[in-house]
Amino acid sequence: MVANQPVERPDSMDFLVNRIRQLEQKVAELTAQSKFPFSVSHGSTRDFSVLPSNSGDGSADLYMGNGAGGSLLEVYTDSTYHRKIATLRDMSGRIMLSTDAATGYGLGNPTLPYPYDGQEQIDLTGATSPGSAVEIGSGSNWPYNPALWVTPRVRTFSAANATVKMFAVFTAAGGTYTTGERTINITGGVVSISRPEFATYLAAGDIAAAVNVSFKVYCSAGTASGVTAQMWFWRGMGVSKGFVDQTLQGAL
């Protein structure tokens, strides 16, 4: 006890006020401290955790369980692209929703449809170069995936042998993306049915905004006169950049 300091009785008002202040200070100190790492479980089943990332990048991974030992929601560093992503899974462990790991924008899952439509039979007379190519189909949608993958069904015919070239032009807020050309060889007098494949990456500013596509064809060999082509929808969808990187490089 300090000399001349008033003695506080345990039941006095001053004692209670000072005690409350001490408790408030202690609570403030405790709440200011980091709770990382943090984990909650019932029995041996993990329910929720914020733990150091297994990637070793110094960040934290968030985990929310489904109550049955599986993952419901996770935020973690992707092992392939080393970028933070968020995933939502069903009770079977399948990813129902995720951000795109390769780009950091848009959806990696699910893939969303990209619609388009084709023209009736088009005469390719005069279409002998990319500059004079004619439109055989078109479409538009607001994609949420960072890449598009389209595979139309194309019917071509010529009385003589001919070679048709086809390409796709995607027009988005971030610019115009023209794919490589696909070759359709026609044997004279025989109808050719093909499914040329096209893909393009999208920029961050293209997500959730209108992206249009135009499919164009021209003849590069033989005569364009008497060559006809028509197109209709077969497959079109938004996909992850990783899917294009690993599977569809030849479609760009």
Rank of each mutant, 00 (worst) to 15 (best):
A127E: 10
A127G: 07
A127C: 09
T128F: 01
S129E: 04
P130H: 06
P130A: 05
P130K: 03
G131H: 06
G131M: 04
G131N: 13
G131A: 10
S132G: 02
S132M: 00
S132I: 00
A133S: 14
V134G: 01
V134W: 03
E135T: 15
E135N: 14
E135K: 12
E135I: 12
I136D: 09
I136P: 10
I136Y: 11
I136V: 15
G137F: 08
G137P: 02
S138V: 10
G139L: 07
S140W: 01
S140L: 02
S140P: 00
S140C: 01
N141S: 15
N141T: 14
N141R: 08
N141V: 03
W142G: 03
W142V: 13
W142I: 12
W142M: 12
P143R: 11
P143F: 11
P143D: 10
Y144G: 13
Y144R: 15
N145W: 02
N145S: 10
P146T: 07
P146N: 10
P146L: 09
P146Y: 10
P146V: 11
A147K: 05
A147G: 11
A147I: 02
L148I: 14
L148E: 03
W149C: 04
W149P: 01
W149D: 14
V150E: 13
V150H: 09
V150R: 03
V150F: 04
V150S: 09
T151L: 04
T151V: 14
T151I: 14
T151D: 10
P152S: 11
R153L: 13
V154P: 11
R155N: 13
R155G: 05
T156E: 11
T156P: 02
T156D: 08
T156H: 03
T156K: 06
T156I: 09
T156Q: 11
F157L: 08
F157K: 04
S158R: 05
S158Q: 04
A159T: 12
A159R: 12
A160V: 09
A160E: 12
A160W: 03
A160Q: 12
N161G: 14
N161I: 10
N161S: 14
N161V: 06
A162G: 00
A162N: 07
A162T: 01
A162Q: 00
T163D: 07
T163S: 09
V164A: 06
V164G: 03
K165I: 01
M166G: 00
M166D: 02
F167Y: 15
F167C: 07
A168T: 06
A168F: 09
A168E: 08
A168V: 03
A168P: 08
V169R: 12
V169Y: 03
V169W: 01
T171A: 09
T171C: 00
T171G: 00
A172F: 02
A172V: 01
A172H: 00
A172D: 01
A173C: 04
A173W: 08
A173T: 15
G174V: 06
G174M: 07
G174K: 08
G174I: 04
G174D: 07
G175S: 04
G175K: 08
G175H: 10
